[in-house]
Simulated scan of single mutants.
Amino acid sequence: MNRLIAAVLLAAAAVPTVAAAQTPPATIGERYVPAPWWMREPVIASVGQVRTQVPANRAGFAASFQSIDRTAADASRKAADQIRALSQSLAAYGADIVRVETTLTTRPLYDQYRDADGILRDNVRADRIERYQADATVSVTVRDTRVLERVYATIVASQPTSIGQVWFNLEPDNAVKTWLQGEAVKDAARRSREAAANAGATLGEVKVIDPTGRACQTDVLAGWPSYGGGGLPTDVDSSDIVVTGARMGPPPPPPPPAPAPVVGAVAPSEAQIEAARLTLQPPLRELTDQACVVYSLN
């Protein structure tokens, strides 16, 4: 029994210890606060902040083709006929370059009349349907912007009823993210070397490398952990990299050749496509990153 009581007391005594270990090391505003372990000797902590601009590597737009006929089936068939050859031509690029999504919607067009106030209204009754309107929509996502101008010109040459605005987006791959993180660490090291040299000191061994940058944002004077940003980012040159859907490397080869015409389908001619061609240059998008590096000082 005595052993059991002693075990219970020991367990109870251990609870405050665990709770204390989970307590933050200090409260902001206290007069004295403990310093991080890496500040037990002279150190220098530097935040590397970098930014670069790379061209967008995704683009897309949508176009609609409209058809009106006496029956829903005829209207839908005619609308589908307008986009069949176009869809097959775009699909020939391959799903890794051009993704195509087609949809077809049909709605009735009712007989109209004027009410007592002279306002034109639809006679919304099943027996008063005059014709049917079918809208075939082609939504295109271009994953290789080298073919964007030709894809856009192909759709324009197909004479759609309406065409939407081209949108651009940047989806950097893991290689680009790794490159930018490396530049952030290099920037932190450069800032540390210059600061130490200006203060008449030299750098020692590396104590901390924090890719998030938060370790360098602890404010010991205010009572850590208190975080805040600071400093201006360093611009890094991304002209030697190319952001694509799957890789980072040297400039790409010329665009792939145009897909072969679809047999048995009516598609825009090469002359019509070239006549509709416009300049569509992907805009630049900004990427940023930061890293914290802590050195000892000699």
Rank of each mutant, 00 (worst) to 15 (best):
Q112E: 14
L120S: 11
Q49N: 09
A136F: 05
D96E: 05
R3N: 10
T103A: 13
S76M: 02
Q49L: 13
I5E: 06
G60C: 00
R128H: 13
S139V: 12
T103D: 07
T17V: 15
D81C: 10
N57E: 00
D74P: 10
V15F: 02
S89N: 08
T23S: 10
R125T: 13
R40A: 13
E101W: 04
A91T: 15
R58K: 07
W38V: 13
D69M: 03
A80F: 12
A45Q: 03
P25W: 04
D115Y: 04
I28Y: 07
D127G: 12
P42K: 02
R107D: 14
D115P: 04
A95G: 11
L86E: 03
L4V: 15
R128A: 15
A72Y: 01
P34R: 01
W37V: 15
A21R: 03
L10E: 05
R99Q: 15
V140T: 12
G60L: 00
S87I: 04
D115M: 10
P36L: 05
R107W: 05
V98T: 09
A92Q: 02
P55C: 04
A126G: 11
T106G: 04
A13I: 11
V8M: 14
A11V: 12
L120V: 13
F61Y: 12
G118K: 07
Q88M: 08
D81E: 13
Y110D: 07
N57I: 00
Q82S: 11
A79N: 00
T17I: 15
D135E: 07
N57Q: 01
P16Y: 09
L9W: 08
A13R: 03
I129W: 01
R3S: 14
R114P: 06
S87V: 11
L10F: 10
A73D: 01
S64C: 09
R70S: 02
L104R: 04
D122I: 11
A26I: 11
D96S: 08
W37Q: 09
R131C: 00
Q53G: 13
T71K: 02
S76E: 00
A7P: 01
V124N: 09
G48Y: 01
P36G: 09
A26Y: 01
P24A: 15
T106V: 14
D74A: 14
T137S: 01
P25N: 05
P36I: 06
K78D: 11
A95W: 03
I119E: 10
S64H: 06
T103L: 04
T106L: 04
V8N: 05
I97F: 05
I28H: 07
W37R: 07
R125G: 15
E101P: 06
Q53S: 15
I119G: 05
R31N: 05
V140W: 03
A7S: 08
T106K: 03
K78M: 10
M39I: 07
